[in-house]
Amino acid sequence: MLKVKDLHASINGKEILKGINLEVKAGEIHAIMGPNGSGKSTLSAVLAGKEIFEVTHGEIEFNGKNLLELSPEERSREGIFLSFQYPIEIPGVSMVNFMKTALNEHRKHKGLDPVTASDFLKLMRERKELVEIDSALTNRAVNEGFSGGEKKKNEIFQMAMLEPKLAILDETDSGLDIDALRIVANGVNKLKRSDNATIVITHYQRLLDYIVPDFVHILYNGQIVKTGGKELALELEEKGYDWIKNGEQN
């Protein structure tokens, strides 16, 4: 599904990603872990197409398409979803209007007619239940005045609405209490299918107790320095990131 080859990216001339190689297949869950500043969020932003980052070298292929040629909205319509670490508030724009606009763009891309009002409301209700999101949340403006936990739940709700092929969860666990964490993780697990894939970016192994990865990659200084199964996350938790950093030096 996703093939990243020797990806280099920089911001304002400073190189952040220094040769990332990553392959994600349908049905897989990949976890990317790493210390602050290792490039985790940059990787997710580059995959989503944030223009502030300049890709200086390498390739990204997504379902046979050259992702780097697509605009952020085209990537979304192709099935890439980014759950933001810090979801953005859009005052005055209702969740209903926002989600409907987004969904219809996705439908148009697939050659489908816009969703009818009643079908849309039905879908909203269904997906709200699926991700156990409070009904009142979707009656408000996009993320406006939401608590940290509400914002993250709202991301998962949007993911449920858009049914992406590849979901990238950027530190979705940060700022969540244990109950919210469970709800968010359950949502992600319920949306899991054999034809989609998930990349979970996190600092902590805690989230991986709930979302069990097939692969764990450790990102350090702009490169994936170690790849393993879920046990790698436990080992990392035990030894700390110094283990990786020191490993680099040795």
Binding site: K50, P72, I90, V93, E105, A141, L162
Partner: peptide
């Protein structure tokens, strides 16, 4: 904010539509 526009983009909404959405929200 460019962050607001990117957020909309990431959900599949073009920049032009995103601006319209944001402005209409502002003026609602």
């Amino acid at each position: 904010g460019e962050d607001q526009i990117f957020y909309c983009n990431q959900r599949g909404i073009s920049t032009e539509d995103a601006v319209a959405l944001i402005i209409n929200g502002y003026a609602k």
